[in-house]
């Protein structure tokens, strides 16, 4: 039974369709990420759930009840905005207390819950601080406490970590995940950062140009991308043009001088996608020449010129000797490490 359900939701601004045919079931306690480049419709979808925008078509249901009929102020969702949107004229405690006050929670209980919420995000002792006098990370925590203290049915996070520096962002990711696990609030995160989506979510909704490209666990979307877009967007990938050769038995997949038994159900021109870290140097396979070799501490990054076009290879720095720039190499990978799709336009 779906907890939050989006049923063929679409949003148009004038003639422009920003979100189209968006269907998703979210289970209670699940952590979902909407992942995609800017302008893909992820924030618009979030705003429709929050009620700041009305869907042009489709329905949004929470526990079976139509959410679109409810005023945004009555939906009881917790939202953390990209800009944090803290009330600058109120202290941290007053910010967190605001939602409770709107719900008519008595003063005594309010104070207790505010203190607990601030403690949960590690801000005990900052009650009387004004947002302007707090760091970005602290403001972020206040915003989170403010959204969570009202015990929201769903927590909506709109690029909450994008204004933090890299190190702080990583810390907050871990903390966010822990808090979410502890209290079990159903959470939707909007982000353009694939690492963030992968490290936080139970499932990722990859979006492009207003449509869902793929819904799946982080591992599924990474290992088995449903489209070229997904494989490109989630990390680096190599796309090689190949063909299915039916003149031999068993049929073979051919890409340059690399060959493998063909997967079932495909024929003719195909695209072979392989992640750079799954490619190894071997005695047979795609012939290539190493153009540049970059040392990156825990791994090496090779840019190669292969017979099927440019290729990127990542090798763990395991202390062994690596080929040098200018070396001729053979690129090889296991069949289970690639995904093969029919080539568009061929």
């Amino acid at each position: 039974m779906a907890y939050l359900e989006l049923d063929r939701v679409a949003k148009q601004f004038g003639a422009q369709t920003v979100v189209d045919d968006f269907s998703l079931s979210v289970g209670k306690g699940e952590f979902i990420s909407f992942l995609g480049p800017s302008g893909c419709g992820k924030t618009t979808t979030l705003q429709m759930i929050a009620g700041f925008l009305d869907p042009t078509r489709g329905a949004i249901r929470l526990e079976g009840k139509d959410l679109t009929a409810i005023h945004p102020a009555k939906r009881g969702l917790g939202i953390v905005f990209q800009s944090y949107a803290l009330f600058p004229h109120m202290t941290a405690a007053e910010n967190v207390a605001f939602g409770l006050e709107m719900r008519g929670v008595p003063r005594g209980e309010r104070a207790k819950r505010v203190r607990a919420a601030l403690a949960m995000v590690g801000l005990s002792g900052y009650e009387d601080r004004h947002p302007r006098r707090m760091s970005g990370g602290q403001q972020q925590r206040v915003a989170l406490a403010r959204a969570l203290v009202i015990k929201p049915s769903v927590l909506l996070l709109d690029e909450p970590l994008s204004n933090l520096d890299a190190k702080l962002r990583e810390e907050m990711q871990i903390e966010l995940r822990q808090i979410q696990r502890t209290i079990g609030t159903t959470t939707i995160l909007v982000t353009h950062d694939q690492n963030e989506a992968m490290s936080l979510s139970d499932r990722i909704v990859v979006m492009s140009q207003g449509r869902i490209e793929q819904i799946g666990t982080p591992q599924e979307t990474y290992e088995k991308p449903a489209s070229a877009f997904v494989s490109q967007f989630l990390g680096k990938t190599n796309d090689f043009a190949g063909t299915i050769d039916r003149t031999v038995a068993p049929t073979q997949l051919v890409a340059g001088s690399w060959r493998a038994p063909a997967p079932a159900g495909l024929g003719g021109a195909v695209t072979v996608s392989v992640r750079p870290e799954r490619i190894g140097f071997g005695d047979t396979g795609l012939s290539a020449k190493i153009i540049t070799r970059i040392f990156q501490g825990n791994h090496w990054l090779f840019q190669c010129d292969s017979e099927c076009g440019p290729a990127i290879v990542i090798r763990q720095n395991d202390g062994k000797a690596q080929p040098a720039e200018g070396d001729a190499v053979r690129l090889t990978w296991r069949s289970e490490d690639m995904s093969v799709r029919a080539r568009a336009g061929a």
């Binding site: 005023h71 945004p72 939906r75 949107a85 009330f87 939602g99 709107m102 403010r146």
Partner: peptide, 12 residues
């Protein structure tokens, strides 16, 4: 968004 935040917390 500050106003949106207030609305989401129940102010109107």
């Amino acid at each position: 968004t500050v106003e949106m935040a207030a609305v989401s917390l129940g102010a109107g």
